[in-house]
């Protein structure tokens, strides 16, 4: 499946009243993150528990591999905490994002 499209060049026009289109994204949120979840492909058995518990919905499975849409991951760490195989490690972000 395709991940959400972000139009960062959005010119800022105003729709009539408050009738807006659905899923209209103009900014990403990686700058919110101090730590970043990193998946160890060796330990991961693609059980998708991390996909279930992610409040952002940024974790997905593609070709039997777990992927993360880092554009919107806030680094909350629930995935790492809940992973039964300790296959996700939270790594400090070296530089500020965003």
């Amino acid at each position: 499946m395709t991940r959400a499209i972000v139009n960062k060049k959005f010119s800022g026009e105003i729709p009539v009243g408050t009738y807006g289109p659905a899923m209209h994204l103009t900014e990403t949120l990686e700058g919110w993150r101090n730590e970043k979840p990193v998946i160890s492909a060796d330990a991961c058995n693609n059980c998708k528990l991390c996909y279930l518990v992610c409040p952002e919905g940024v974790i997905f499975s593609e070709n039997n591999q777990i992927q993360i849409d880092y554009r919107f991951c806030k680094g909350c760490g629930i995935c790492a905490k809940e992973c039964k195989r300790a296959a996700i490690i939270m790594e400090k972000e070296v530089t500020a994002n965003g």
Binding site: P15, V16, G17, T18, Y19, G20, P21, A22, M23, H24
Partner: peptide
């Protein structure tokens, strides 16, 4: 209503 909610063309209203 032009901007109405529509299953084929969903809207986010009253934002």
């Amino acid at each position: 209503l032009e901007g109405k909610m529509d299953l084929n063309n969903p809207k986010n209203l009253f934002f």
